[in-house]
Design a protein around this nucleic acid. Structure first.
Lengths: 211, 211
DNA sequence: GGCTACTTCCTTACAACGTAAGGTTGATGT
DNA sequence: ACATCAACCTTACGTTGTAAGGAAGTAGCC
């Protein structure tokens, strides 16, 4: 007889499917098949699809928390938070569906609250007021979880280079910017890592001044 | 005979449904019904559901562009961009489904590119390098479109106040922060408008220094 | 053992979804 | 008058989430 199903095994399988085939491939039937079980059997461990996605989000946040808790940074509050957010980003890069799933959840996973609690703790310890700490959490947005809201999607950037030339008159400044920057970008145009850190430091610097 | 269907009328109806009943209620059948037509008739104006959502996103961006173009700010680049982003935010507040739809699109609506082009133009005109202008666009993320990635969802904040007391020992800093801030918040706990402007100014100030 | 209760898993079924394929209709150009 | 063609409809299929209820194994208790 095969290993018994548990909520945890179901969630792990769900993450596996999402990683391998994308979040759209995560259906109840498909998930059942992955576990050698019929779709309806899953309902004894999860109340439904929504609860499944809640659980997946929770699992993802758990993974991030684990990575974040192992961060040791010798330095001030900035160095610590910076290292944490970048650690979270590494997890998120392994689960590209993460932002979408987290955004689709009605309630914040409890792990996220615990995480925020620790961030606030760091800032209060560094001499910030609760008011600024509060605003900092908002200003960070999703950066503690390792991603930012990109209005450009990465894929659009890849193909954008070619297309832009065709509409140079409609987007003169964008085209000029690409022309000006293209030869300087060692790591490729629109290196997300660089942008992420730039934005992060911009916020950290600004907050430091607000202290 | 009733008014003829056009792509534009279809998209307008789609926006109406999304505003009134939520984006999940926007199905082909429902949209057809709204227009007094069968679902399949929509396929003569849109290639499918995905094209519909692309069109809805395009419509939304168009609305934002219209609002943004009417902004006149007497002042420096910061005042201008600030006023534009806040104008965009007003539109986005009327379409709560906006962030979700924009995030779900594979390609960036062209209007967004035109919008970014103008932002870059403003910054170059103010003496920024293309490199910093580029990073600024990334740093702004979705703020030009009037929203930020909130890891807290607004609804979670509403109910959070009560729940937090029950888990005070698990979230000591969060609870302390709420206690410290609650009596100072004239406009309610977690006033999104205030947070939005705070984050925006943090970025604008930081960029100004990078000039 | 044998009875009961409970969890786990399966079978069947249904409504709603997006959309492929093809039919009907009415306006327009010649 | 006839051909063309866009606009709209009918029917049907596969896939989705899940409600309802049955079957099979496990555990506790006499």
């Amino acid at each position: 007889m095969r290993k018994a199903l548990t909520r945890d095994r179901v969630l792990q399988a769900a993450v596996t499917i999402a990683d391998r085939d994308g979040i759209a491939a995560l259906t109840m039937r498909r998930l059942g098949a992955e576990l050698g079980v019929e779709a309806m059997s899953l309902y004894h461990h999860l109340r439904g699809k929504d609860a499944l996605l809640d659980g997946v989000a929770e699992t993802l946040v758990g993974e991030i928390l684990e990575a974040v808790e192992q961060v040791v940074a010798d330095g001030d509050w900035r160095a610590l938070l910076r290292a944490r957010f970048l650690a979270a980003r590494e997890i998120m890069l392994r689960h590209r569906w993460g932002p979408g799933v987290l955004n689709s959840r009605a309630d914040v996973p409890f792990g996220v609250l615990r995480y925020y609690d620790s961030i606030i703790g760091v800032m209060i310890g560094a001499g910030f007021s609760y008011r600024i700490a509060h605003r900092a959490v908002h200003a960070f947005g999703s950066m503690p979880l390792g991603f930012v809201q990109e209005a450009f999607s990465p894929s659009a950037d890849d193909t954008g280079g070619d297309d832009l030339a065709a509409v140079a008159d409609l987007l003169p400044n964008l085209v000029a910017m690409v022309a000006s920057e293209a030869h300087e970008a060692e790591l490729g145009w629109c290196d997300s890592q660089v942008e992420f850190e730039f934005t992060l430091d911009l916020l950290l610097d600004g907050l430091d001044r607000a202290r």
